[in-house]
Design a binder for these strands. Structure first.
Lengths: 164, 164
DNA sequence: TTAACTGCAAACGTTTTGCAGGCGG
DNA sequence: CCGCCTGCAAAACGTTTGCAGTTAA
């Protein structure tokens, strides 16, 4: 029962981060708590730049870019966030903690990021890892192509109409 | 039969690149051919920096960093290379043309990159894409964790031997 | 001949870092 | 009060780009 804290799955992100910090002699500062609050206020994908901008609109306190980058690294390490893709040269993050495992369809044209869930993939990867004596910790699967909206060919009209 | 060149799968990488270039009014220069030669001389994964360094050791001609970056983009576009992962902030490339589809196990400790093949994954992704009306063009699957060698705990010797 | 290509150096955008002062526990 | 944390500015990093001269076709 002494391991309860280590396996507690019902804690809030803030509590989980707190736990991560204290077990490493680190501190829950005002800046870190603001960042966690902001990050978990919505479920959207985001990159460092977007987070910096969102934070700059808050009135409670300014958080510097450096602190944001440092916190993102810690949140990933703590298992609260994961980096899921790279877009326009920036790392894209999303909630990891308390959010079901999934992967992404990335449209190369409009940049849209669509989540999909398929449990077989994880099963296959576990088997593959076992075969290779590899201890899998995470995976990142980016499926690129054209989304439903961008699939439609650039021709505005079918050839048939040109018969006239 | 007029489409032979477009569907020719037995051409060498050099020939295929040549074809890509001419159909776009581009030219097969000395630099580009040296790069293709160097890239397809071995089957190892590499990044731009490594390629630049390899090329700098050649005696036939110096190829600038800019030209390397420009060529890498073209080789990916031509379907000869694909970027498979990102390591230490650098894009990692490997042969795409004439090489069976596969994914990678990436050790976060030693950085080793192990290929594995699993045809089910592709099948699943095709199905997922269909369900979402997504036209899949490619996928990138990075499985991170600890490789066989790095799995073993950091203890250098069993406690037993310390009994003496 | 001429337009695509190259090397150079400088620019670029993201991310990291050294440091002096601030502040949590 | 110790030492972790912050903001700042500057550095670092991989990559891209403008340009003037070079070269393939």
């Amino acid at each position: 029962m002494s391991e309860l804290s280590a396996t507690n799955v019902s804690a809030t992100p803030m509590e989980k981060f707190q736990e991560y910090l204290v077990t490493r002699g680190m501190r829950m500062t005002r800046e870190r708590s603001i960042i966690v609050e902001e990050v978990f206020a919505s479920h959207a994908h985001f990159d460092a730049e977007q987070l910096v901008e969102q934070l700059s609109r808050r009135q409670d306190r300014r958080v510097s870019r450096s602190t944001v980058y440092r916190a993102l690294e810690q949140l990933v390490e703590a298992g609260l966030l994961r980096s899921v893709a790279r877009q326009d040269g920036r790392e894209v993050y999303e909630h990891d903690y308390g959010y079901p495992q999934h992967d992404h369809l990335i449209c190369r044209k409009c940049g849209s990021l669509t989540e999909f869930h398929n449990s077989e993939i994880r099963t296959i990867l576990e088997e593959v890892a076992r075969e290779h004596g590899f201890r899998m910790e995470a995976h990142r699967l980016e499926v690129t192509g054209l989304c439903n909206d961008c699939c439609r060919p650039p021709v505005t009209r079918p050839e048939k109409l040109n018969l006239l």
